[in-house]
Design a protein around this nucleic acid. Structure first.
Lengths: 117, 117
DNA sequence: TCCATATTTCAATAATCCTATGAATATCGA
DNA sequence: TCGATATTCATAGGATTATTGAAATATGGA
């Protein structure tokens, strides 16, 4: 990830509706959610959700695929990884204890030996 | 971290100068950098850097301390951890393989056994 | 083909943010 | 205390972004 994409990603996530949508899709997993279902959950008009989904797509955070009449959106986990990597680049200049808490923050559901504080 | 703070943090990082400053401070470590040194490195006027530093401080991403005539800023690693945690909350609903790449992205300088793909 | 469903596109308004400028504040050394 | 250095505060303009509602596109079934 380069600086330009990171800026686009951060801008995409700095809007309430979009942040909610992305978190929803992160929880939903690879199967994703239809645009209509998303609009219903976040209680925003269809056209507004469409606008925000397009922004998320432009940032690379989600991808869309058509399924019959619905368009299904799902989170792009790789871009999230890239974002974290970009942010923490050269983070601790050889002093692992500085960024250990950040590492442990990312061990969501798979506590990893050696990553603890 | 709650949604409000996450939004503030993302907004803070969606601006080129601020993103550069934060990355600079992440690399600098706990010792931090003086406002003047930051202004020089990012090639922006002192007052503009001050404005952006205040935004980063408001988001909790940096803290300031005075040292003689200088004000030293340093990154708040905890807030970065919190941000990642917030973003990945309930991420894979029991399927660790989904978010494993995200975990490995955060293992900056301390490759951790078991976190690999 | 015709209609209903699902979603996007467009245009206009409203709201927000960035940057530059100059004045103001705080610290240090003579 | 005075001048020099370091940083912050306040204002305003110009640019970007969000929201709304109506019209347009695409799909599936009768």
């Amino acid at each position: 990830m380069d600086e330009r994409q990171a800026l686009t990603v951060f801008a995409a996530l700095s809007q309430e509706t979009r942040l909610r949508i992305l978190r929803m899709l992160v929880v939903a997993g690879p199967e994703g959610l239809a645009a209509g279902a998303i609009a219903e959950k976040v209680e925003v008009s269809a056209s507004n959700v469409s606008f925000h989904l397009k922004e998320l797509e432009r940032a690379g955070l989600v991808t869309a695929r058509r399924d019959a009449r619905s368009i299904i959106y799902s989170a792009e986990y790789d871009v999230l990884s890239g974002l974290i990597r970009f942010l923490m680049e050269d983070c601790c200049s050889g002093r692992p204890e500085i960024c250990a808490p950040v590492i442990s923050a990312a061990t969501c559901c798979t506590p990893v030996k050696g990553a603890a504080l």
